[in-house]
């Protein structure tokens, strides 16, 4: 069939105009949620800090003369056991932590969405996909991450790969159920009847329909990745070349400073908390706003 025929597919059910107005409505509802906007601001600030790290503080290297100094005007967040400035470490850590979050989430989403959509669209594969996802979800994730990271040798790519490898099933699970609810709808059948190619139908119909779920997954997977990476780093399984929030905490733990120098752990922990909380709140607010059922009640 021709491209003309494709656009002729039932217009009522593939509504561009409606989508636009629903986006506006979602945005309005989102703004009404008092937790939504502040969360967006915090995430934006953290992203900015990560991008502009070199402009904010010098890269913490080597050592400094004053070890384990409490916060002061010279060192806003105090110094660590080698006399390095913790503020600079947290700023530079933002970069590495964000990088791990973005990369592992991107990888997990790509894989997870692919598996979910293929499974949902080609019904014969669905049982296999469902079983695989269930099996993956039943694996003990953290112990396996520790095992792989320890054996493969800790580095940024390994951390990203390990986190992505255990995050995609959750993405698949969520996206799959959203996709399944769409494939049964009349306009999908119609698109098939008029002979749209599989790839076209998936790209034009299935993916847009699951987009909101994917957006939420991206945010949640990324924020969980930050926590997982910090946990691995705390067990000594992080890249020694770059600063991440987890590494600051790991060094505080190794030097026995956690119990006596509160600033070594408070600030990186707060950074983790700020990012994960605001990312989660953002996705909750978005979810609430997008669901018409949640509005006006």
């Amino acid at each position: 069939m021709t491209a003309q025929a494709r656009t002729d597919a039932p217009a009522v059910l593939e509504p561009v105009a409606v989508a636009e107005s629903s986006a506006r409505r979602t945005w309005r509802a989102f703004r009404r949620n008092p937790l939504g906007l502040p969360a967006v601001v915090v995430v934006a600030v953290l992203i900015l800090v990560g991008l502009c790290a070199p402009l904010i503080a010098a890269e913490p290297t080597g050592y400094g003369p004053d070890v384990l100094q409490a916060p002061s005007a010279a060192h806003w967040f105090g110094t660590d056991n080698l006399g390095r400035d913790i503020f600079a470490e947290v700023v530079w850590g933002t970069r590495a932590s964000m990088l791990v979050a973005v990369c592992s989430s991107a990888l997990a989403i790509a894989l997870g969405v692919l598996v979910a959509v293929v499974g949902a669209y080609f019904r014969r594969l669905d049982t296999a996909v469902g079983t695989l996802v269930d099996l993956m979800l039943s694996l003990p994730v953290l112990p396996l991450m520790i095992l792989i990271a320890a054996l493969a040798g800790p580095s940024l790519p390994v951390t990203v790969a390990v986190i992505a490898a255990f995050s995609w099933p959750e993405v698949t699970r969520v996206v799959r159920s959203a996709a399944l609810s769409v494939v049964g709808l009349p306009y999908m059948d119609a698109a098939r009847v008029i002979g749209g190619s599989h790839r076209w139908i998936i790209r034009k119909h299935l993916l847009p329909a699951t987009a909101p779920v994917i957006v939420v997954s991206v945010v949640l997977t990324a924020s969980r990745a930050v926590l997982s990476a910090a946990g691995l780093a705390f067990l000594g399984l992080s890249d020694a070349q770059s600063w991440s929030w987890g590494r600051i905490l790991y060094e505080a733990q190794q030097s026995g400073a956690m119990s006596s120098a509160w600033w070594t752990t408070l600030f990186p922990s707060l950074a983790i908390l700020a990012l994960v909380v605001s990312a989660t709140l953002m996705s909750i607010a978005y979810n609430d706003a997008r669901n018409p059922r949640n509005q006006g009640r």
């Binding site: 384990l68 056991n81 190794q254 030097s255 026995g256 400073a257 006596s260």
Partner: peptide, 9 residues
Amino acid sequence: TLPPAQVDV
């Protein structure tokens, strides 16, 4: 044995 930075503390 103690981490060096904890000895003084």
